[in-house]
């Protein structure tokens, strides 16, 4: 997991460096012609890369978290089918991170003008959005996986103690706090720009 995060962060850093390069180039030769370079390294594209990080990372996390919880649910429900309905709620808990990432990604699309059809951002603005998306992306990825594990453990608890469902849900929901805080910061950063 740590390796993945480091990989993601270094990817972002590389993008920053690459994005800074054209400004050096522009200082040397002041030509206005649009190159392939400009096509990739402009504000709109950078902000969309940010939206990609928000949606993709938290989506991966949610998929993994729901997957973990779903496997346990299938195992426990095989023993006691009456728990099936309750476990859908527990299984779906880690799905919210993916939604938060989606929300952040979509807010970027509203703000950078892609939806309105007048997207024209400076590289600095694009970079701003890219970084604004990182909190929910990274935190969503990791918190969803851990929430999935807690939800799975909660299912095993409910299998033994049927009346403890409320607590199982609460334990899993506590993990989500940090994804919510991350979404808060991401959303505020996007809105405030």
């Amino acid at each position: 997991m740590k390796k993945k995060v480091i990989l993601i962060l270094s990817l972002v850093l590389a993008l920053v460096v690459l994005a800074a390069l054209p400004s050096f180039a522009a200082a040397e030769e002041e030509t206005a012609s649009l190159t392939l370079w400009d096509f990739f390294y402009n504000g709109t594209t950078l902000s969309l890369i940010g939206a990609f990080f928000a949606v993709a990372l938290s989506g991966i996390g949610s998929a993994k978290g729901v997957g973990i919880a779903g496997q346990t649910a299938a195992g426990v429900v095989a023993e006691d089918p009456s728990l099936g309905g309750k476990f859908i709620a527990l299984e779906a808990l880690p799905a919210t991170q993916g939604i938060y990432g989606f929300v952040a990604g979509f807010l970027v699309m509203i703000k950078n003008g892609v939806i309105a059809g007048n997207a024209d951002l400076s590289v600095a603005d694009g970079m701003y959005y890219l970084f604004a998306c990182l909190p929910i992306g990274v935190v969503g990825l990791i918190s969803a996986i851990h929430q999935g594990k807690v939800a799975a453990a909660g299912m095993q608890m409910v299998a033994k103690q049927k009346d403890q469902f409320g607590k199982a849900i609460t334990y899993a929901a506590v993990v989500e706090t940090y994804a919510i805080l991350a979404l808060l910061i991401s959303a505020l950063l996007i809105f405030l720009h």
Binding site: T96, I99, Y100, F102, V103, E176, T177, I180, L181, L183, L184, A187
Partner: peptide, 9 residues
């Protein structure tokens, strides 16, 4: 703040 997060979602 989760109220805002869920409302926004």
């Amino acid at each position: 703040m989760r109220i805002m997060a869920l409302g926004l979602a």
